[in-house]
C-alpha cells in the first residue's frame, strides 16, 4: 500500500514536470530576449536600485533567495546533527599548542574591524558589489579568527539560533507584507527613495540585512560545530 502511494505520487510529480518541461521551447528566441531587458529597465525605473544583480536576487527572484537561505539553514542543521552524535564532551577542543600573545591581542583588535567590514558590505548591498551572503561570510570569518586565537572562546548556540530564526521569520514576514499589499511575494511596498543613496530600493536593503544576519549566524554555528568536533 505504501509503495503504491509512493509510486502514485512520483507519477503525479513526473507528469507535472513533464507538462512543464515539454511545453518549453529550449533555445528559442523567447529565452535569449525579453526577460533581461525587463529586469534592466525595471531595476532603474521602478525600484531605484543601482545594483541590478541585487534587485534580481532579492526582489524579482526573492523567492529563490529564500530557498537558498533555507538550504543553508538545512545544511547547518544537518551538520550539527551529524557531529553532535560523535561529540561527547561539549565545549572541549583539541589544541596542539596555544596561540601566542601577539596573535591573541592582535585578533582582539582585528575582530571589530572585520565585523564592521561585514556590516558595511551587507548594508551597502544594493549600491555596491556584495550583499547579504558575502557580508555574513565576512562576519563569520571574524568569529573564526577569534575561535582560532582563543581556544576557550565560546559562542552561545542559543543566541545564534535565535538570531537565525528571527532573521528568517522577518524575511518571510516582509515577503508576506508584499503579498498583502501588491499581490506578489516580496513585492516592494516601501517608498523607493532616490537612486544611489543609502535609503533606496524599498525592501531590498532590509531583506539584505536580514540575510546578512542569518548567514552570519549559520556559518558561525557551522564553524563552531566543526572546531568542537571530538572523536
Amino acid at each position: 500500500m505504501k509503495k503504491l502511494i509512493v509510486i502514485l505520487l512520483l507519477a503525479v510529480l513526473a507528469w507535472d514536470l513533464g507538462v512543464i518541461f515539454l511545453g518549453l521551447n529550449f533555445g528559442n528566441e523567447h529565452f535569449t530576449e525579453g526577460v533581461k531587458d525587463q529586469y534592466l529597465e525595471k531595476t532603474v525605473t521602478e525600484l531605484n536600485v543601482a545594483n541590478t544583480v541585487t534587485s534580481i536576487v532579492v526582489n524579482f527572484r526573492g523567492f529563490d533567495t529564500l530557498g537558498e537561505v533555507t538550504v543553508l539553514f538545512l545544511a547547518a542543521t544537518a551538520l550539527g546533527g551529524i557531529l553532535y552524535k560523535k561529540r561527547h564532551h561539549v565545549g572541549e577542543r583539541s589544541v596542539l599548542f596555544p596561540s601566542s600573545s601577539l596573535v591573541m591581542s592582535g585578533s582582539k583588535l582585528l575582530f571589530p574591524a572585520i565585523i564592521l567590514l561585514g556590516v558595511y558590505v551587507f548594508v551597502h548591498g544594493h549600491l555596491s558589489p556584495g550583499g547579504g551572503f558575502q557580508g555574513g561570510t565576512i562576519i563569520a570569518t571574524g568569529f573564526l579568527l577569534m575561535l582560532l586565537a582563543y581556544d576557550n572562546y565560546s559562542v552561545s548556540h542559543n543566541l545564534l539560533s535565535i538570531v537565525e530564526s528571527l532573521a528568517g521569520i522577518f524575511f518571510v514576514v516582509i515577503g508576506l507584507l508584499g503579498f498583502m499589499n501588491h499581490g506578489t511575494f516580496l513585492e516592494n511596498f516601501l517608498p523607493t527613495g532616490t537612486l544611489n543613496s543609502l535609503f533606496s530600493g524599498g525592501v531590498i536593503p532590509i531583506v539584505y540585512i536580514l540575510i546578512g544576519f542569518k548567514v552570519a549566524a549559520e556559518l558561525t554555528g557551522v564553524i563552531y560545530t566543526v572546531l568542537h568536533e571530538k572523536d
Partner: peptide, 21 residues
C-alpha cells in the same frame, strides 16, 4: 594601517605554527 597591522601578524602566526610542528 590595516596592512601594516595584519600582514606581519599573520606571517608571525604562520612561522610560529610551522616551528611548533
Amino acid at each position: 594601517i590595516f596592512i601594516a597591522y595584519s600582514n606581519p601578524l599573520s606571517s608571525h602566526a604562520l612561522a610560529r605554527a610551522m616551528y611548533k610542528r
